[in-house]
Simulated assay, not measured.
Amino acid sequence: MSLTDELWSAIEPIYAEILDHPFIGGLTDGTLPREAFRHFVIQDSHYLRDYARALALCAAKAPGEQDVRAFADDAIGALAAEQGMHAEFLTAFGETAEEAAAEPVLPTTRAYTSYLLATVYGGSFAEAVAAVLPCYWIYARVGEQLLAKSSPEPLYAKWISTYGDEAFQSVVRRVLALTDRLGEEISPAERRRMVEHFTTTTRYEWMFWDAAWRGEAWPV
C-alpha cells in the first residue's frame, strides 16, 4: 500500500463526517448563515498566517532543492490567499483586514496551529509533511466534491471555486507525490508517526468548520 493510500484509509470516517457537516452543506445550498462564514473567514486568516510559517519550516527541513522551493512558494501562496481572497470576503462583510486581525484567535484555531507548529518544529521533515498535508488534501477533495454543485450564494461559490479548480488540485498532486516518495524511504516507526499526525490534523479540519458553525468563543 502506498503511503497516501494508508493515510487516506486512516481518515476516511473523518472525511465522511466533514462532507456531512451542516457547514459544508450550507455552503452548497446557500443556507449557511453569513455569521458562520464570517467566523470561518476571520479564523482562517489567523490560521493561514501560522500555516505559512509551518510551510516555511517544511521548506527549511526539505532535503532537496526542488522541495525547498515548492514549500517556500506554498508559504507565500498561503499568505497571498489570506491577503487576497479573504480581503474580498471581508469587504462583503463591511470590514477591513486590520479589523479582522484584531479579533481574537479562538480555541480551535489556537489548538490547531499550536499542534501544527509544534509538530513541524520538533519532528522530522516527513512528520512535518504529514501535519500540513490535510490542509492541502482535505480542501482539494472537498472543493472537488462541491465544485459541480457550486452555490447560489456568490461568496460561497467563490470559496468553492478556489479550492476546486485545477491550479490548486495540481499543487496538491505534487505534495501527494512527495508524500509517496517519503513513504519509500522512512522507517516503520516514522510512518506510524506520519499517520498519527495526519489523522490529528484532519480531525482539526473538522473541528475548524464545526467551530464556525457553532459560533465558538472563549468561554471566559
Results as ranks from 00 to 15, higher is better:
Trp8Asn: 10
Leu19Tyr: 09
Val142Gly: 03
Glu205Asn: 08
Ile160Met: 00
Tyr136Gln: 05
Arg110Met: 08
Leu27Arg: 00
Phe198Ala: 03
Leu155Val: 02
Ala130Cys: 03
Arg193Gln: 12
Ala56Gly: 15
Ala100Ile: 10
Thr4His: 08
Leu7Ala: 04
Trp8Thr: 04
Leu48Cys: 08
Leu106Met: 15
Phe168Pro: 12
Ala52Phe: 09
Ser161Pro: 01
Leu147Ala: 13
Ala87Thr: 10
Glu6Cys: 07
Leu117Gly: 09
Glu17Thr: 12
Ala157Ile: 01
Leu176Arg: 15
Phe40Ile: 02
Ile160Asp: 00
Ile18Ser: 05
Arg69Cys: 05
Ala60Met: 10
Ala60Tyr: 02
Pro104Glu: 06
Val41His: 00
Gly77Trp: 07
Thr162Gly: 00
Trp159Glu: 00
Val171Met: 12
Pro154Arg: 02
Trp213Ile: 08
Gly215Ile: 06
Ile138Gly: 01
Ala78Val: 06
Thr28Ser: 13
Thr28Tyr: 00
Pro219Gln: 14
Ala92Gln: 13
Ile24Leu: 10
Leu32Pro: 03
Leu19Lys: 14
Ala211Trp: 03
Ala157Trp: 01
Trp218Lys: 13
Leu178Phe: 10
Tyr139Ser: 04
Ser45Thr: 13
Glu12Ala: 15
Tyr112Gln: 08
Arg34Gln: 13
Ala118Pro: 01
Leu178Ala: 03
Ala16Asp: 15
Ala100Gly: 09
Glu205Cys: 04
Ala131Tyr: 06
Trp137Ser: 01
Asp44Phe: 05
Met207Arg: 14
Asp74Glu: 08
Glu127Leu: 03
